[in-house]
C-alpha cells in the first residue's frame, strides 16, 4: 500500500533482504504491493508464484503493466477470501503502520501464509526520540516524512513494541533483521541496541517454531 508516490520514492527499498529470504518457487502474497517492484523481483529472481494486493488504482495498473497478478482490495477488510496456508509467504513491506487493524492483519497473514515477512519503520530510532524530546513536535524523518495531519502512518511502533506484540500473540520470530540506512550503500545490519539505532525492522514470523504447518 503506497499512500502516494512521494512516500515510495523516499523509502529506500530493502527488497534484496526480503528476496533472499524467500525460497525459490514458493507461493507469495504481497500485501500492499504498491507498483509491484518487490513482487516483480521475486518473480524474476526467485521464480515465485506471486499475487499482490493493493488499494491504489494507479499502482494496480502499474502491476498489471508489469504482468503481475494483482487484486485491488483493502487490507483492513481482512483476508477472509483466502484459504488457510494458501501461501508460503505473506509479505507486508513498509505497510504495517498505515493499516487500521494491524493485529487482525498479522493474525490473518499467519493463517493464510506459512510464514509472514513484516517490515516497518522504527519509531524508537534515536533521531525520532531526539526530535520529539528537543522540538516537542511530532518527528519527521526520511522514513516518516509526513506531518501529523497528513500522515498515512496511523500505527507507529518501535522494534521493541513489535517484539512484545509477537510475544503476547504467541507468534514465533524466526528471524529479526534490524537495519539502518547508510548513504550510498545498502542498509546496514544493526547487531546491538537495535531499538535505538535501527531505523527499520524486518521480521520473519510464524505460528510454529520451525515455520512449518501446525
Amino acid at each position: 500500500m503506497t499512500p502516494d508516490a512521494q512516500h515510495a520514492d523516499i523509502l529506500i527499498p530493502d527488497y534484496s533482504r526480503i528476496v533472499s529470504r524467500v525460497e525459490a518457487g514458493s507461493r507469495v502474497l504481497d500485501l500492499g504491493c504498491g507498483k509491484g517492484d518487490l513482487l516483480l523481483r521475486l518473480v524474476k529472481e526467485r521464480g515465485v508464484k506471486g499475487m499482490g494486493v493493493e488499494i491504489d488504482e494507479n499502482a494496480v495498473i502499474e502491476c498489471i503493466h508489469k504482468g503481475l497478478s494483482v487484486f485491488q482490495g483493502d487490507l483492513d477488510e481482512g483476508l477472509s477470501d483466502y484459504g488457510d496456508e494458501s501461501y508460503d509467504y505473506v509479505i507486508l513491506d513498509q505497510t504495517l503502520q498505515v493499516i487500521r487493524r494491524p493485529e487482525l492483519v498479522i493474525a490473518e497473514m499467519l493463517r493464510v501464509g506459512k510464514k509472514a515477512i513484516v517490515s516497518f519503520p522504527n519509531f524508537g530510532h534515536w533521531k525520532v526520540r531526539w526530535k520529539l524530546l528537543w522540538s516537542g513536535h511530532m518527528p519527521r524523518t526520511p522514513k516518516l516524512p509526513f506531518y501529523w495531519y497528513n500522515t498515512p502512518n496511523i500505527h507507529l511502533l518501535t522494534i521493541s513494541d513489535f517484539v512484545a506484540f509477537c510475544r503476547a500473540q504467541k507468534i514465533y520470530i524466526l528471524e529479526e533483521i534490524d537495519l539502518v540506512q547508510a548513504q550510498d550503500r545498502d542498509p546496514k545490519i544493526i547487531r546491538w541496541g537495535a531499538n535505538w539505532r535501527a531505523d527499520e525492522g524486518l521480521f520473519v514470523l510464524s505460528r510454529t517454531r520451525q515455520g512449518h504447518a501446525q
Binding site: 494496480v60 487484486f71 477470501d81
Partner: peptide, 21 residues
Amino acid sequence: SRELVKALRQNNKDVSYLEIE
C-alpha cells in the same frame, strides 16, 4: 466479479482484479 476472481485465485491462476470508481 470478486467471486470469480476468488475462484481463479484459489486455483493459483494468473488473475488480476480492479474495481473502477
